[in-house]
């Protein structure tokens, strides 16, 4: 093997090793940061895991929003309007489009008592746009999505 080939071989081996390591790391990172989405039915029915980062979604039940008078703690109930509903607790500022009767997504963990501790509350971005997860779930309750919405 002449020196030029040897250099080239070193480079190739170096690259392969680097690529292998990075692919492994990437896949590990991906695996750890996937948030499964569960509709109310799955949360109530016990399909959703307890103590794991997940996403859940539903409509905010009318009259269920309860703000603490001292802090920013808030609780509300998410429902699919066909029998399944579960309570959510959150502390912080709710998005502008958070409203009773509207579809939202919460990210966080489900605890042993079936209460969802949300770290993030995501609302629809405007009057007509519906997160795809919800659009499917509540086809019967929702207006057809308006294709003209632009949200960046």
């Amino acid at each position: 093997m002449n020196p030029k080939r040897r250099t080239r071989l070193t480079v190739v081996l170096f690259l392969l090793a680097g690529a292998g390591v990075s692919v492994t790391l990437v896949l590990l990172a991906l695996n750890e940061n996937i948030n499964m989405f569960y509709p109310p039915e799955a949360v109530v029915g016990g399909e959703a895991p307890v103590g794991t980062q997940i996403r859940a979604g539903g409509m905010v039940l009318e009259g269920s929003v309860d703000r603490d008078s001292e802090s920013l703690d808030v609780s509300f109930v998410l429902t699919d309007y066909v029998g399944a509903e579960f309570p959510v607790r959150y502390s912080g500022i709710l998005p502008d489009l958070f409203r009773e009767g509207q579809g939202i997504i919460v990210q966080g963990e489900l605890n042993g008592e079936g209460v969802f501790r949300a770290s993030q509350v995501l609302a629809k971005h405007d009057e007509n746009y519906m997160p795809p997860e919800l659009a499917e779930m509540s086809a019967g309750h929702q207006k057809k999505p308006n294709p003209l919405n632009y949200d960046r």
Binding site: L25, N33, I34, M36
Partner: peptide, 25 residues
């Protein structure tokens, strides 16, 4: 694209990829 592929191959299961994934890599 992962959420899209996941949905295609699992027949409709929805996932989202968290920000830590992007930052970690």
């Amino acid at each position: 694209l992962y959420p899209l592929a996941y949905e295609l191959f699992t027949g409709g299961a929805k996932i989202s990829v968290g920000v830590p994934y992007f930052n970690a890599g």
